[in-house]
Amino acid sequence: MKILCLLFAGLAGCALAPGWHWERPGAASADYAEDERICKVDTYAFNNGEVTRASVRRMHACMEARGWRKVND
């Protein structure tokens, strides 16, 4: 039973992982971290950090405005 539970938990974790990542030509991981931080502050500071579909769209728009593009894994 324990093995079955672990198997289901592992499969559920994989299903939650996004199938994409952000890329920007010539950018370093520090650039990504800084842009992500700025976009999170801009997006979530005024709604108490609540994640909604609208806030996710704003977050993505912010990242895209900074030159990042979503790339499939």
Rank of each mutant, 00 (worst) to 15 (best):
M1Y: 15
M1I: 10
K2H: 15
K2D: 14
C5N: 11
L6H: 10
L6W: 13
L6T: 07
L7Q: 07
L7P: 02
F8I: 03
F8E: 01
F8T: 01
F8V: 05
G10P: 03
G10W: 00
G10T: 11
A12Q: 11
A12M: 11
A12C: 11
G13F: 12
G13W: 12
G13N: 12
C14G: 11
A15M: 10
A15V: 06
L16W: 10
A17N: 07
A17S: 10
P18I: 00
P18V: 03
G19R: 14
G19L: 12
W20F: 09
W20K: 01
W20N: 04
H21I: 04
H21V: 06
W22S: 01
W22C: 04
E23A: 08
R24C: 02
P25E: 13
P25K: 13
G26C: 05
A27K: 07
S29R: 14
S29W: 06
D31R: 02
Y32G: 10
A33C: 06
E34L: 12
D35H: 08
E36I: 03
R37W: 15
I38T: 12
C39Y: 11
C39E: 06
V41Y: 13
V41R: 07
V41W: 12
D42E: 15
D42S: 04
T43F: 02
T43W: 05
F46R: 15
F46N: 15
N47S: 10
N47V: 14
N47K: 11
N47L: 07
G49I: 03
G49T: 06
V51W: 00
V51F: 02
V51E: 01
R53P: 10
R53G: 15
A54D: 07
S55Q: 06
S55L: 02
R58V: 06
R58E: 08
R58M: 09
M59S: 06
M59H: 15
H60M: 07
A61R: 13
C62W: 09
M63R: 00
M63F: 04
E64H: 01
A65E: 08
A65T: 09
G67Y: 00
W68V: 02
W68M: 00
W68H: 01
R69Y: 00
R69L: 07
R69H: 08
K70E: 03
V71M: 00
N72W: 04
D73E: 06
D73T: 07
D73R: 07
D73L: 05
